[in-house]
Protein backbone atom coordinates (compact mmCIF):
# COMPACT_ATOMS: atom_id res chain seq x y z
CA UNK A 1 0.00 0.00 0.00
CA UNK A 2 1.28 3.43 -0.75
CA UNK A 3 0.72 6.14 1.76
CA UNK A 4 1.18 9.48 0.14
CA UNK A 5 2.63 12.23 2.27
CA UNK A 6 -0.70 13.97 1.83
CA UNK A 7 -2.41 11.30 3.86
CA UNK A 8 0.02 11.74 6.73
CA UNK A 9 -0.49 15.45 6.92
CA UNK A 10 -2.27 17.16 9.74
CA UNK A 11 -6.04 16.65 9.64
CA UNK A 12 -8.19 19.73 9.47
CA UNK A 13 -11.84 20.53 9.49
CA UNK A 14 -13.26 20.26 6.02
CA UNK A 15 -15.09 23.16 4.52
CA UNK A 16 -17.83 24.86 6.48
CA UNK A 17 -17.15 23.33 9.88
CA UNK A 18 -14.72 25.60 11.62
CA UNK A 19 -17.08 26.41 14.47
CA UNK A 20 -18.23 22.82 14.80
CA UNK A 21 -15.09 21.50 16.44
CA UNK A 22 -15.28 24.07 19.20
CA UNK A 23 -18.95 23.39 19.74
CA UNK A 24 -18.06 19.75 20.43
CA UNK A 25 -15.43 20.44 23.08
CA UNK A 26 -17.24 23.30 24.75
CA UNK A 27 -19.41 21.35 27.24
CA UNK A 28 -16.52 19.15 28.40
CA UNK A 29 -14.09 21.99 28.77
CA UNK A 30 -16.71 24.03 30.60
CA UNK A 31 -17.38 21.23 33.09
CA UNK A 32 -13.68 20.57 33.64
CA UNK A 33 -13.11 24.23 34.28
CA UNK A 34 -16.14 24.47 36.55
CA UNK A 35 -15.11 21.49 38.67
CA UNK A 36 -11.35 21.70 38.21
CA UNK A 37 -10.32 25.32 38.00
CA UNK A 38 -12.84 27.54 39.77
CA UNK A 39 -12.77 25.57 43.00
CA UNK A 40 -9.01 25.59 42.75
CA UNK A 41 -8.95 29.36 42.55
CA UNK A 42 -11.41 29.52 45.41
CA UNK A 43 -9.16 27.23 47.40
CA UNK A 44 -6.20 29.44 46.60
CA UNK A 45 -8.05 32.36 48.17
CA UNK A 46 -9.06 30.26 51.17
CA UNK A 47 -5.45 29.23 51.73
CA UNK A 48 -4.53 32.85 52.38
CA UNK A 49 -7.13 33.44 55.08
CA UNK A 50 -7.83 31.87 58.44
CA UNK A 51 -10.94 29.69 58.33
CA UNK A 52 -11.16 26.89 60.88
CA UNK A 53 -13.67 25.16 63.10
CA UNK A 54 -13.77 28.15 65.47
CA UNK A 55 -14.14 31.05 63.12
CA UNK A 56 -14.76 31.96 59.52
CA UNK A 57 -12.02 34.52 59.45
CA UNK A 58 -11.73 35.99 55.95
CA UNK A 59 -8.97 38.45 56.74
CA UNK A 60 -5.79 38.11 54.74
CA UNK A 61 -3.19 36.08 56.60
CA UNK A 62 -0.50 36.13 53.94
CA UNK A 63 1.62 33.02 53.79
CA UNK A 64 0.86 32.04 57.37
CA UNK A 65 -0.82 28.75 56.39
CA UNK A 66 2.00 27.86 54.03
CA UNK A 67 4.60 28.68 56.65
CA UNK A 68 2.73 26.53 59.13
CA UNK A 69 2.56 23.70 56.61
CA UNK A 70 6.28 23.80 55.87
CA UNK A 71 6.99 23.81 59.59
CA UNK A 72 4.54 20.96 60.28
CA UNK A 73 6.54 17.81 60.98
CA UNK A 74 3.38 15.73 60.66
CA UNK A 75 2.94 16.83 57.05
CA UNK A 76 6.51 15.88 56.16
CA UNK A 77 6.12 12.58 57.94
CA UNK A 78 2.97 11.95 55.93
CA UNK A 79 4.90 12.69 52.77
CA UNK A 80 7.60 10.31 53.97
CA UNK A 81 5.05 7.55 54.65
CA UNK A 82 3.59 8.04 51.19
CA UNK A 83 7.00 7.80 49.57
CA UNK A 84 7.95 4.71 51.58
CA UNK A 85 4.81 2.89 50.55
CA UNK A 86 5.37 3.90 46.94
CA UNK A 87 9.04 2.94 46.99
CA UNK A 88 8.31 -0.53 48.34
CA UNK A 89 5.04 -1.40 46.66
CA UNK A 90 5.86 -0.17 43.16
CA UNK A 91 8.98 -2.33 42.54
CA UNK A 92 7.24 -5.30 44.17
CA UNK A 93 4.24 -4.98 41.90
CA UNK A 94 6.48 -4.55 38.89
CA UNK A 95 8.68 -7.56 39.59
CA UNK A 96 5.82 -9.85 40.61
CA UNK A 97 3.77 -8.70 37.66
CA UNK A 98 6.65 -9.28 35.29
CA UNK A 99 7.34 -12.75 36.68
CA UNK A 100 3.66 -13.66 36.37
CA UNK A 101 3.54 -12.29 32.84
CA UNK A 102 6.50 -14.48 31.92
CA UNK A 103 4.76 -17.48 33.43
CA UNK A 104 1.59 -16.91 31.45
CA UNK A 105 3.24 -15.72 28.25
CA UNK A 106 3.30 -19.08 26.52
CA UNK A 107 -0.03 -20.55 25.66
CA UNK A 108 -1.15 -23.59 27.63
CA UNK A 109 -4.58 -25.10 28.16
CA UNK A 110 -6.59 -23.08 30.67
CA UNK A 111 -4.37 -20.03 30.41
CA UNK A 112 -7.25 -17.74 29.50
CA UNK A 113 -9.20 -18.81 32.57
CA UNK A 114 -6.25 -18.16 34.88
CA UNK A 115 -5.74 -14.72 33.36
CA UNK A 116 -9.44 -13.90 33.66
CA UNK A 117 -9.45 -14.90 37.33
CA UNK A 118 -6.24 -13.05 38.18
CA UNK A 119 -7.81 -9.80 37.00
CA UNK A 120 -10.40 -9.79 39.75
CA UNK A 121 -8.46 -8.11 42.60
CA UNK A 122 -7.77 -5.09 40.42
CA UNK A 123 -11.42 -4.34 39.69
CA UNK A 124 -12.56 -4.63 43.29
CA UNK A 125 -13.21 -1.27 44.90
CA UNK A 126 -10.09 -0.28 46.86
CA UNK A 127 -12.18 0.34 49.96
CA UNK A 128 -13.59 -3.18 49.64
CA UNK A 129 -10.08 -4.52 49.14
CA UNK A 130 -9.07 -2.76 52.33
CA UNK A 131 -12.07 -4.17 54.17
CA UNK A 132 -11.30 -7.63 52.83
CA UNK A 133 -7.74 -7.48 54.10
CA UNK A 134 -8.86 -6.22 57.46
CA UNK A 135 -10.93 -9.41 57.65
CA UNK A 136 -7.92 -11.41 56.52
CA UNK A 137 -5.62 -9.79 59.08
CA UNK A 138 -7.92 -10.06 62.07
CA UNK A 139 -5.80 -11.27 64.95
CA UNK A 140 -8.21 -13.95 66.12
CA UNK A 141 -10.75 -14.76 63.39
CA UNK A 142 -8.64 -13.97 60.32
CA UNK A 143 -7.02 -16.69 58.23
CA UNK A 144 -3.57 -15.08 58.03
CA UNK A 145 -2.68 -15.65 61.66
CA UNK A 146 -4.23 -19.07 61.43
CA UNK A 147 -1.96 -20.05 58.55
CA UNK A 148 1.06 -18.56 60.28
CA UNK A 149 0.07 -20.61 63.32
CA UNK A 150 0.23 -23.80 61.23
CA UNK A 151 3.60 -22.84 59.86
CA UNK A 152 5.16 -21.99 63.22
CA UNK A 153 3.29 -24.65 65.14
CA UNK A 154 1.90 -22.27 67.74
CA UNK A 155 -0.72 -19.57 68.00
CA UNK A 156 0.26 -16.35 66.27
CA UNK A 157 -2.09 -13.61 67.58
CA UNK A 158 -0.41 -10.84 65.54
CA UNK A 159 -2.05 -7.42 65.60
CA UNK A 160 -1.47 -6.56 61.97
CA UNK A 161 -3.33 -3.27 61.91
CA UNK A 162 -2.12 -2.04 65.29
CA UNK A 163 1.40 -3.31 65.88
CA UNK A 164 3.86 -0.63 64.67
CA UNK A 165 6.18 -3.23 63.18
CA UNK A 166 3.38 -4.91 61.22
CA UNK A 167 1.20 -2.11 59.88
CA UNK A 168 3.40 -1.33 56.92
CA UNK A 169 3.74 -4.94 55.81
CA UNK A 170 -0.04 -5.27 56.11
CA UNK A 171 -0.70 -2.19 54.00
CA UNK A 172 1.83 -3.20 51.40
CA UNK A 173 0.52 -6.76 51.17
CA UNK A 174 -2.98 -5.44 50.54
CA UNK A 175 -1.77 -2.90 48.01
CA UNK A 176 0.45 -5.37 46.19
CA UNK A 177 -2.35 -7.92 46.18
CA UNK A 178 -4.74 -5.51 44.56
CA UNK A 179 -2.44 -4.00 41.95
CA UNK A 180 0.04 -6.67 40.92
CA UNK A 181 -2.61 -8.09 38.58
CA UNK A 182 -2.77 -4.68 36.93
CA UNK A 183 0.95 -4.78 36.21
CA UNK A 184 0.63 -8.38 35.19
CA UNK A 185 -2.09 -7.71 32.62
CA UNK A 186 -0.29 -4.79 31.03
CA UNK A 187 3.06 -6.52 30.92
CA UNK A 188 1.51 -9.71 29.57
CA UNK A 189 -0.03 -7.71 26.74
CA UNK A 190 3.26 -5.93 26.11
CA UNK A 191 5.27 -9.16 26.14
CA UNK A 192 2.82 -10.81 23.75
CA UNK A 193 3.44 -7.98 21.31
CA UNK A 194 7.21 -8.43 21.24
CA UNK A 195 8.28 -9.32 17.73
CA UNK A 196 8.95 -13.08 17.72
CA UNK A 197 11.31 -12.87 14.76
CA UNK A 198 13.60 -10.58 16.77
CA UNK A 199 13.77 -13.15 19.55
CA UNK A 200 14.53 -15.86 17.03
CA UNK A 201 17.22 -13.74 15.40
CA UNK A 202 18.76 -13.15 18.83
CA UNK A 203 18.79 -16.83 19.69
CA UNK A 204 20.40 -17.61 16.32
CA UNK A 205 23.02 -15.01 17.13
CA UNK A 206 23.66 -16.89 20.35
CA UNK A 207 22.31 -14.35 22.83
CA UNK A 208 21.51 -15.75 26.26
CA UNK A 209 18.30 -15.22 28.22
CA UNK A 210 19.41 -12.10 30.07
CA UNK A 211 21.02 -10.59 27.03
CA UNK A 212 17.86 -11.12 25.00
CA UNK A 213 15.72 -9.74 27.79
CA UNK A 214 17.81 -6.62 28.25
CA UNK A 215 18.51 -5.82 24.64
CA UNK A 216 15.26 -6.84 22.95
CA UNK A 217 12.41 -7.57 25.34
CA UNK A 218 12.92 -4.67 27.72
CA UNK A 219 13.15 -1.95 25.06
CA UNK A 220 10.10 -3.43 23.35
CA UNK A 221 7.92 -3.44 26.46
CA UNK A 222 9.31 -0.23 27.92
CA UNK A 223 6.65 2.14 26.56
CA UNK A 224 3.88 0.09 28.17
CA UNK A 225 5.91 -0.53 31.31
CA UNK A 226 6.60 3.17 31.69
CA UNK A 227 2.93 4.01 31.46
CA UNK A 228 2.02 1.23 33.88
CA UNK A 229 4.62 2.55 36.33
CA UNK A 230 3.38 6.10 35.90
CA UNK A 231 -0.24 5.16 36.48
CA UNK A 232 0.67 3.13 39.54
CA UNK A 233 3.07 5.71 40.96
CA UNK A 234 0.35 8.34 40.77
CA UNK A 235 -2.16 5.98 42.38
CA UNK A 236 0.25 5.12 45.16
CA UNK A 237 1.03 8.75 45.77
CA UNK A 238 -2.63 9.43 46.48
CA UNK A 239 -3.25 6.19 48.39
CA UNK A 240 -6.18 6.60 50.74
CA UNK A 241 -8.82 3.88 50.61
CA UNK A 242 -6.81 0.86 51.70
CA UNK A 243 -5.21 2.76 54.55
CA UNK A 244 -8.56 4.17 55.62
CA UNK A 245 -9.99 0.67 55.80
CA UNK A 246 -6.98 -0.91 57.51
CA UNK A 247 -5.54 1.66 59.92
CA UNK A 248 -7.11 5.09 59.36
CA UNK A 249 -3.55 6.35 59.50
CA UNK A 250 -2.78 4.76 62.84
CA UNK A 251 -1.39 3.68 65.16
CA UNK A 252 -1.14 7.34 66.08
CA UNK A 253 -0.12 8.96 62.84
CA UNK A 254 2.26 6.19 61.88
CA UNK A 255 0.67 5.30 58.56
CA UNK A 256 -0.77 8.67 57.74
CA UNK A 257 -0.22 9.46 54.06
CA UNK A 258 -0.57 12.78 52.31
CA UNK A 259 -4.19 12.11 51.37
CA UNK A 260 -5.12 10.84 54.82
CA UNK A 261 -3.40 13.81 56.46
CA UNK A 262 -5.22 16.32 54.29
CA UNK A 263 -8.51 14.57 54.88
CA UNK A 264 -8.05 14.57 58.63
CA UNK A 265 -7.00 18.22 58.71
CA UNK A 266 -9.80 19.38 56.45
CA UNK A 267 -12.71 17.17 57.35
CA UNK A 268 -12.27 15.99 60.90
CA UNK A 269 -10.33 18.87 62.44
CA UNK A 270 -11.82 21.49 60.08
CA UNK A 271 -8.64 23.50 59.70
CA UNK A 272 -10.02 24.60 56.37
CA UNK A 273 -7.51 27.23 55.35
CA UNK A 274 -4.61 25.13 56.48
CA UNK A 275 -5.85 22.09 54.54
CA UNK A 276 -6.31 24.29 51.50
CA UNK A 277 -2.68 25.32 51.67
CA UNK A 278 -1.63 21.68 52.04
CA UNK A 279 -3.77 20.62 49.07
CA UNK A 280 -2.16 23.30 46.93
CA UNK A 281 1.30 22.20 48.00
CA UNK A 282 0.39 18.64 46.98
CA UNK A 283 -0.83 19.78 43.59
CA UNK A 284 2.37 21.72 42.98
CA UNK A 285 4.56 18.85 44.14
CA UNK A 286 2.70 16.37 42.00
CA UNK A 287 2.74 18.56 38.93
CA UNK A 288 6.50 18.88 39.23
CA UNK A 289 6.88 15.13 39.77
CA UNK A 290 4.64 14.17 36.87
CA UNK A 291 6.29 16.58 34.49
CA UNK A 292 9.63 15.17 35.52
CA UNK A 293 8.47 11.58 35.02
CA UNK A 294 6.92 12.32 31.65
CA UNK A 295 10.20 13.91 30.57
CA UNK A 296 12.08 10.82 31.73
CA UNK A 297 9.83 8.58 29.71
CA UNK A 298 10.18 10.78 26.66
CA UNK A 299 13.94 10.71 26.92
CA UNK A 300 14.00 6.95 27.41
CA UNK A 301 12.05 6.51 24.24
Amino acid sequence: MTVSSDALARPRAPVGERGFKYLLIAPSVFLLLAIGIFPLLYMLVVSFVGIDMMAEDWSFKGLANYKAAFADARLWQALGHTLIITAVALPLELLLGLAMAQLFLEKFPGRQIFVALLVLPTVVSPIVAGATWSLMFDNRYGPINQILGWIFGKEMPLLWTVDPTLVYPAIIVAEVWQWTPFMFLLLLAALSNVDKSQLEAASIDGAGYWMTFRKIVLPAIWPVMAIALLIRALDLFRIFDIIWALTKGGPGTMTETISVFTYVKGFTQFEISYAAAVALIIIVLLTVAVTWMLKKIEIAR
Binding site: S28, G266, F267, I283
Partner: peptide, 24 residues
Protein backbone atom coordinates in the same frame (compact mmCIF):
# COMPACT_ATOMS: atom_id res chain seq x y z
CA UNK B 1 -2.01 21.42 24.89
CA UNK B 2 -5.70 20.67 25.27
CA UNK B 3 -5.15 16.91 25.14
CA UNK B 4 -2.37 17.14 27.74
CA UNK B 5 -4.37 19.42 29.99
CA UNK B 6 -7.30 17.02 29.90
CA UNK B 7 -5.25 13.96 30.77
CA UNK B 8 -3.41 15.88 33.48
CA UNK B 9 -6.80 16.48 35.09
CA UNK B 10 -6.91 12.74 35.62
CA UNK B 11 -3.63 12.80 37.49
CA UNK B 12 -4.52 15.32 40.18
CA UNK B 13 -4.95 13.52 43.52
CA UNK B 14 -8.63 13.19 44.40
CA UNK B 15 -8.09 14.76 47.83
CA UNK B 16 -6.85 17.93 46.15
CA UNK B 17 -9.90 17.98 43.89
CA UNK B 18 -12.50 17.18 46.47
CA UNK B 19 -11.36 19.68 49.03
CA UNK B 20 -12.02 22.81 46.98
CA UNK B 21 -15.13 21.22 45.49
CA UNK B 22 -16.39 20.61 49.00
CA UNK B 23 -15.82 24.25 49.93
CA UNK B 24 -17.74 25.33 46.84
Amino acid sequence: NLANWIISQRMVPPIAIVFPVFLM
